[in-house]
Design a protein around this nucleic acid. Structure first.
Lengths: 144, 144
DNA sequence: AGGTAATAGTTGAATTTGTAACTAACAACG
DNA sequence: CGTTGTTAGTTACAAATTCAACTATTACCT
């Protein structure tokens, strides 16, 4: 495979970031998919509710930077599996406050443990100071 | 939004990497989509051929870590737009060698220029030494 | 108050992706 | 040779995502 061009695709950030994101998501995805039949947006909603307790779909979408239709469908799937319930808002009847059921919390705790172990394994090949730089750079690129 | 849990989702690498990857791809995606109606796999195939000159679908798939059905469809789209041609292999009739047409090369050069400018803008907010660390860490996480 | 705009969330249709099965060709081994 | 396995690439079907339109409700403005 001989190069006849100076552009280095392997180092182009949108490309490289995507490779790293996909590779480093694969193992975790396998677990939440196999164990709970969840999709990516599902576990994200689950984690947001597990961490923050009670949120609206809109809040989750804002925080996770996910479109409202994806949130809506993920919430519907989690509700169908009895992982969350909706509570209506007293003042604004458009809004539904979401909260994990006991089963949802159990799933969250299980997956949070998996996530922590998985994260530890991911960074185990990197120097701690490099991980710190990596996280800061990623937060910057993510616009945070 | 009050946290009642210690897990920091915003720093969880599979989550953070994905946020950074999506945010930092958005601007570039807008351009190849608006300007050429391409999808992500399309520009990747285009770039591989633009850089390496002549490759098989299999080679591109290996290098970009993309499944063969996605490559197959991207190649079909690019061929339909006369951006590439297939040449049969003398020894193995299963294989098709792909090569950009003049139009494909023009599109590639155009988008390569966009990519270079885009990359420069992406890293402009980061210290050069941090960018170096970032790239090394991403290559490691991508399994390279 | 009444009309217009904005917001929360859902739904349907079109596009895209994932999975598996498939065709065609080559390889390896007896 | 011939049978079995492997590989390159395509296709069919199901699943997921995107985009636009929609309902229902609240906010704004005069």
């Amino acid at each position: 495979m001989e190069k006849n061009d100076a552009f280095d695709l392997q180092l182009f950030l949108p490309y490289l970031l995507n490779q790293a994101a996909e590779t480093s998501s694969d193992g975790f995805q396998q677990i939440y998919k196999d164990r709970y039949g969840m999709l990516r947006t599902d576990w994200r909603v689950l984690f947001h509710l597990g961490i923050y307790g009670r949120m609206t779909a809109r809040d989750i979408g804002r925080m996770a930077q996910v479109h409202k239709t994806k949130i809506s469908r993920a919430v519907a799937r989690l509700e169908a599996r009895r992982f969350l319930t909706r509570e209506e808002d007293g003042a604004d009847r458009r809004v539904a406050h979401l909260r994990l059921t006991a089963a949802g919390q159990a799933a969250y705790r299980d997956l949070r443990g998996v996530a922590e172990a998985y994260e530890a394994r991911l960074v185990s090949g990197l120097a701690p100071e490099d991980v710190a730089v990596l996280r800061r750079a990623l937060l910057h690129l993510a616009g945070r």
